[in-house]
Computed example of a mutant assay.
Amino acid sequence: MQALRINVVLFGIGSVGSALINQVTESQQFFQEKRNIDLRFPIITNSTLAFFEKEGVKNIWEADFNKLAIPFTITDIIAFVKNKELENVIIVDATESAELVKSYIPLIQNGFNIVAANQSANILHIDFYKDIRRNLKKFDKNFLYETNIRAGIPVLQIISDLYYSGEKITKIRGVFSDSLSYIFNRFSSENVPFSTILNDAEKKGLLKKDFKEEFSGIGIARKLLVLARELGKEIEFLDIKIESLLTKDFEMPNVKSKFLSKAAVLDKDLEITKILQPINHVLRYVAEISIPENRFEVKLVSEPITSAIGQLKETETVFEIYTQSRGNNPIVVHGDNSGKKETTIARGILTDVLKVSEKIKIKEAIWL
Rank of each mutant, 00 (worst) to 15 (best):
residue 345 I to H: 03
residue 339 G to V: 04
residue 352 D to R: 05
residue 350 L to D: 01
residue 357 S to R: 13
residue 331 I to G: 00
residue 345 I to D: 00
residue 326 R to H: 12
residue 350 L to E: 01
residue 331 I to K: 02
residue 328 N to M: 11
residue 356 V to W: 04
residue 325 S to N: 13
residue 319 F to N: 00
residue 323 T to P: 09
residue 342 E to T: 09
residue 346 A to V: 04
residue 322 Y to R: 04
residue 346 A to G: 05
residue 336 D to P: 04
residue 322 Y to G: 04
residue 326 R to G: 08
residue 354 L to N: 03
residue 335 G to M: 06
residue 354 L to V: 13
residue 354 L to I: 15
residue 331 I to N: 04
residue 353 V to S: 00
residue 339 G to P: 04
residue 334 H to E: 09
residue 324 Q to E: 15
residue 333 V to I: 13
residue 350 L to V: 11
residue 333 V to N: 00
residue 338 S to F: 10
residue 337 N to V: 03
residue 320 E to G: 09
residue 348 G to W: 01
residue 331 I to L: 15
residue 329 N to A: 14
residue 353 V to C: 12
residue 353 V to Q: 02
residue 347 R to V: 05
residue 346 A to R: 03
residue 357 S to D: 11
residue 332 V to N: 01
residue 358 E to G: 06
residue 342 E to D: 13
residue 344 T to N: 15
residue 359 K to S: 15
residue 346 A to H: 02
residue 322 Y to M: 10
residue 341 K to C: 01
residue 359 K to F: 14
residue 325 S to C: 05
residue 344 T to K: 15
residue 341 K to D: 08
residue 334 H to W: 14
residue 356 V to H: 08
residue 350 L to N: 03
residue 323 T to C: 10
residue 329 N to Q: 15
residue 333 V to Y: 00
residue 325 S to T: 12
residue 358 E to R: 11
residue 325 S to G: 02
residue 351 T to P: 02
residue 337 N to L: 07
residue 341 K to V: 12
residue 338 S to K: 14
residue 344 T to D: 13
residue 343 T to C: 10
residue 353 V to M: 06
residue 350 L to S: 08
residue 346 A to M: 05
residue 356 V to N: 07
residue 330 P to H: 09
residue 337 N to R: 07
residue 338 S to I: 11
residue 345 I to Q: 03
residue 339 G to S: 10
residue 325 S to W: 02
residue 326 R to F: 11
residue 332 V to L: 05
residue 332 V to K: 08
residue 344 T to H: 02
residue 340 K to Q: 12
residue 356 V to K: 02
residue 344 T to G: 09
residue 342 E to P: 01
residue 349 I to W: 00
residue 342 E to S: 14
residue 326 R to Y: 13
residue 324 Q to T: 10
residue 352 D to Y: 06
residue 339 G to L: 08
residue 321 I to S: 03
residue 321 I to A: 03
residue 339 G to W: 05
residue 322 Y to P: 02
residue 342 E to N: 15
residue 324 Q to S: 12
residue 353 V to Y: 04
residue 319 F to Q: 00
residue 354 L to Q: 06
residue 321 I to Y: 01
residue 341 K to E: 07
residue 326 R to T: 09
residue 347 R to C: 12
residue 346 A to T: 03
residue 340 K to S: 12
residue 351 T to Q: 13
residue 329 N to G: 02
residue 352 D to L: 08
residue 327 G to Q: 08
residue 322 Y to D: 05
residue 328 N to D: 14
residue 330 P to L: 07
residue 344 T to L: 15
residue 336 D to M: 09
residue 343 T to E: 14
residue 329 N to R: 10
residue 348 G to T: 08
residue 320 E to Q: 14
residue 352 D to V: 06
residue 321 I to Q: 00
residue 319 F to H: 01
residue 344 T to Q: 14
residue 358 E to C: 09
residue 339 G to Y: 02
residue 340 K to W: 06
residue 358 E to A: 11
residue 332 V to G: 07
residue 359 K to P: 04
residue 355 K to N: 15
residue 330 P to W: 02
residue 347 R to E: 13
residue 320 E to T: 01
residue 346 A to I: 06
residue 323 T to M: 08
residue 358 E to H: 11
residue 332 V to D: 05
residue 337 N to C: 04
residue 349 I to K: 01
